[in-house]
Amino acid sequence: MPTLELIRPTGVEADATLPLDFDASRNDDIEALRLPPDADLSQIEDALPRIKSIFVAFDAFTDGRGFSLARLLRQRYGYDGLLVADGQLIPDQFAFALQCGFDAVRVAEGELKRHTPEAWTDALDAFDLTYQRGYAVAAGPATNIFDARLTAMEAGQTADPFSV
């Protein structure tokens, strides 16, 4: 396996061994778990509090299943450990990954020649805004447009009632 680089430091050894098959009956802490894009999350649900980091595999950057997995892990299963998008992502997807709940992206080191670390961080600056409620993140598109409009509307309503 080639050495892999994390875009954003996470404190996890980049080449930590990641168990693919998973024994739910154990009850010790699990350092890192690797999930395929078609993972059935209900099978790991009970163990989630013990899992410290999850690496969701992206076998091709055009395969968007991992985005839904992240969203589900965070929203439906309340997973709050480290979540890494792992594999063939490109910088243009960095914000999407964070918005869906990933903490970091891990790509093969060789990829960083074309897609430099600066390209990854620059990509986060492309948008400050997002239309989807619940997908704003401080590090990427930080403002939800619908929420911002509502705030503006409410501010307008509570302004000086005597002004027109």
Binding site: F61, T62, D63, G64, F67, S68, R71, Q93, A95, F96, Q99, C100, F127, T130, Y131, Q132, Y135, I145, F146
Partner: peptide, 13 residues
């Protein structure tokens, strides 16, 4: 239109 614009989860269907 607005809701579907660059949807973070549904842009690689």
């Amino acid at each position: 239109r607005q809701w579907s614009m660059l949807h973070p989860e549904f842009s690689f269907l």
